[in-house]
Design a protein around this nucleic acid. Sequence first.
DNA 1: AAGACGAAAGTGGTTGA
DNA 2: TCAACAACTTTCGTCTT
Length: 307
Amino acid sequence: MSEMVKKCPECGGINLFWNREKGEIICRDCGLVIEDKMVDFTQEWREFDSSESESRRRTGAPMTFTQFDQGLGTEVGQKSDLFKLDGADRNKFFRLRKWQYRISTAIERNLKLALAELKRVSSFLKLPKSVEEEAARIYTLAVQRGLVRGRSMESVVAGALYAACRRHEVPRTLDELSEASGIEKKEIGRTYRFVTRELGLTILPSNPADYIARFASALKLSAETQSKAIEILEKAQKIELTSGRGPTGIASAALYVSALIHGEKRTQREVADVAGVTEVTIRNRYKELLEELKLEKEIKKTKKKKR
DNA sequence: AAGACGAAAGTGGTTGA
DNA sequence: TCAACAACTTTCGTCTT
């Protein structure tokens, strides 16, 4: 087992808080999230969504940032939650709430609005609950650190959602976020970068394979084509064909090739549309894939079979 | 006629002096 | 702070099916 972190590497504070549900440690002083050895995310939100007594999760001993703030923001379940807390936690609850109120009613009102907006966008994109909560936490931290000033609330919400998606490996493209939130793509990108940098959130570079499933189903491609595409992606990554390029471009090219191989041809235009890139980008990646991975043979093979 | 291909010029963002 | 730079887009003409 890894040893417990005792100090925040960012600010040196010792006021750390362990969120059992997420398997993370959060520094209460600066908001840094210290990953306690990357947990398997899929497992995480399966556990989140299914079974497991809800009430316990919502009200259990660890008071998370998210829950606390959500309770405040929505004014739902505050009282019933209180019943389930023991004395010490109840005191903590009141203390925190008072403190929060004191800061400013403006912040509170802002949060309420923002969380509503966040919920709207999130459900529009059909994002899992765990991502929504992560985004809410990010947004809350951003507000507490005064990062929203000078930016529209909506754009920060969008940025928080984008970051949360990335962290949970269910990436959505900036285009999709943009469509759902009505904020310009570059604006979302800007606030996303700003917020993650200021909060010290570590975001892994998104993996092209994470996009495959969604694109494939949008194009109605078979499961075999999907797994072939992922196989291609893995090979491509081995020879560093993927570094520095946009993940969506690579994903769509791999999907395009794999569709050809399996005789489920889609036009470059079709693939380009669902992936939110241009045909040209697909062509460039596609060309590289053919050259580096000697895939021509496989394509020709299926062509002959068809005759 | 539609799709695939590629050249050329433009855009927004990163990097390094 | 600015210029060089890489990735990606837009546009458009040509070739292929």
